[in-house]
Design a protein around this nucleic acid. Structure first.
Lengths: 217, 217
DNA sequence: ACTGAATTCGAACGAACGTTCGAATGATGG
DNA sequence: CCATCATTCGAACGTTCGTTCGAATTCAGT
């Protein structure tokens, strides 16, 4: 994990550099376990005692690392969302073909989704659980991610001189991709690249407007 | 509502036919209010006291109509899902063209979704909240609905001699449609028929396999 | 108006909830 | 080995949870 997960510390003193990494490492462990529990039982359904049991730390001990259950969810969502956006930006660098850029978007999303199923489910499914400033900060990242996708699609439209509702197309694509947490089964379904390819085909053919397909009317 | 919502009565005596309708009417009212609360706060996040406040009935009074919070969610989900399946079957009668049948499926789903947003969100978003026999019964309806959609798509494949993964296509379609509860805004977005048309275009063009769209490779 | 059944309610139950606090433990550098 | 700070914990706080129970109220048929 490149981005440090450091939360506001409870204590007042500045800490040594050595203990900082230990603190961050431990926090990351807790976040991983918490992600699993939130995934399985939902944010509201998961109790702090569940998190305590799963992470092997006492109930009170958890509060050394974050000041509330809500902030814990926030840390998970922010880290997950930031990472997927950052990875996308890196992968898009140097690629100019609009179609290829959209395929990269889809592949990046699904690869990260399936490699981090629990975190992505918590991000998708608990989108309304946070309040106020926590909610606002995650919403800002979501908006950025959404705007990137809109930009990719508008580029495609411009290049091909097509016309369709970007909004409906983007939100349909997100639906297609995000719904995967409700059905993906590693024992049955192919890997991320195959699914990304299939969804990419489905979506990119779908937004083509030059061909009429309806038989009548 | 055509289907009676009658739950197992608490009392032991059989009731008169006249009071049966009163009971069912009152239960339906409670279910409507509860749907709104579950939609707003989530199943786990909504307390029985929230439901009491919203429906204007005392906390204890609610338990005259159902024996547990879980059964209340079950009644909502079962009624909602049964209704949408039943409506679909009616609308599919007498229509034989595979493409038209799929468009009917999409329109039926989205129309019902947007006309009953709260109930459909509770159905989509709280899919894992029920346990054991409650979960099994809703899962059975879901499986039936899924199988119908698979059948529609297989018919299209057969007619057109196409080949694509029915599973991925169906689940992508469900994702597209069900995700709508996360973004639909009546002030901004068009009505169900327009969205169904756009998604139908997107999906049906998407599953066409005779045309190559990729430029390279 | 009376009566028995249907419906509603106030009050309370024990359990579980998120969070706090002060003491105990662990590690680190002098 | 000691002093210091970081880390962990048992125990408890006050609140809210889903559910229950017996009494009160309302309703329908006579």
């Amino acid at each position: 994990m490149a981005t440090p997960l450091t939360a506001a510390r409870v204590g007042s003193q500045p800490r040594a550099a050595a203990s900082a990494s230990r603190y961050d490492r431990r926090l990351a462990e807790i976040l991983t376990h918490a992600t699993e529990v939130f995934c399985k039982k939902g944010y509201e359904g998961a109790s702090m005692r569940d998190l305590s049991r799963e992470s092997g730390m006492s109930l009170a001990g958890l509060y050394y690392y974050f000041e509330s259950k809500e902030r814990l969810l926030f840390l998970i969502q922010k880290h997950t969302f930031s990472t997927i956006v950052q990875r996308l930006k890196t992968r898009l660098e140097g690629v100019n073909d609009p179609e290829e850029r959209i395929r990269i978007f889809i592949l990046n999303h699904l690869e990260y989704f399936l490699a981090n199923q629990a975190a992505m489910k918590v991000l998708s499914h608990e989108a309304e659980a946070l309040k106020n400033s926590f909610a606002a900060e995650v919403a800002a990242i979501k908006r950025e991610y959404y705007r990137i996708c809109v930009g990719l699609l508008d580029d495609l439209k411009r290049e091909r001189g097509q016309q369709f509702s970007t909004r409906i197309a983007v939100l349909s694509l997100f639906g297609m991709m995000n719904w995967i947490y409700t059905w993906h089964n590693p024992r049955v379904d192919a890997d991320a690249a195959s699914i990304a390819s299939a969804m990419g085909d489905l979506f990119l053919r779908g937004v083509m407007t030059e061909t009429k397909i309806r038989k009548e009317r």
